[in-house]
Simulated assay, not measured.
Amino acid sequence: MSRFFEERERAAEMLFVRTEEARFRVHAQGVQSLAAYAAQVLGVDHFSALAYAEELMASVIQGTKDDALIARVQADLEANGVVVDRAPLVQHLKQPPAQRASGKSLA
């Protein structure tokens, strides 16, 4: 009987790990989408856009919350003379292109 519970516990742990990994991948796609949008608005080259995406992902890994990340991108855009409303930034972060195309939502 003890072995049965150990197997169920292991299965539950694996399910949790897979769920968290999937959640992280979706969030990473959102961050990349946000970085790509900002790069497109600024008109920078592909390599600069990739570097910016990596910089944003590094700050997320260090614990930056979504609101702070959006504020940072908005400040970066404003520092380059581009005023952008918060709504499209939130949309790119919360709903990456793959989900927008399929009509799915994170809620």
Rank of each mutant, 00 (worst) to 15 (best):
V73Q: 14
F47E: 13
F47L: 15
Q29C: 10
V44H: 11
D45P: 12
M1I: 01
G30W: 13
S2Q: 15
V26M: 14
A11R: 04
V44K: 01
V26P: 08
F4T: 07
L77V: 14
L50T: 15
L77T: 05
Q40P: 01
D67V: 10
L15K: 04
A28N: 11
D76Y: 09
A75H: 12
E78Q: 14
A75F: 00
S33M: 03
L15Y: 04
D76N: 14
S48M: 13
A68F: 01
E54P: 04
A51L: 15
E54L: 05
A51D: 08
Y37K: 02
S48T: 10
T19I: 04
V60T: 04
Y52S: 12
F4G: 00
Q40A: 15
V31D: 10
E21P: 05
Q32H: 04
A11H: 05
E55F: 13
A68H: 05
F16C: 15
F5A: 04
G63K: 06
A36E: 14
F16V: 08
A71H: 10
L56I: 03
L77D: 15
E21S: 15
G63Q: 08
A28L: 06
F24D: 07
Q40T: 13
V60H: 05
Q62A: 12
G81N: 06
E9F: 00
A28G: 01
Y52H: 12
T19Q: 09
V73W: 04
A58G: 08
E13L: 05
Y37N: 06
L42T: 08
M14E: 14
M57E: 08
Q29M: 14
L69M: 09
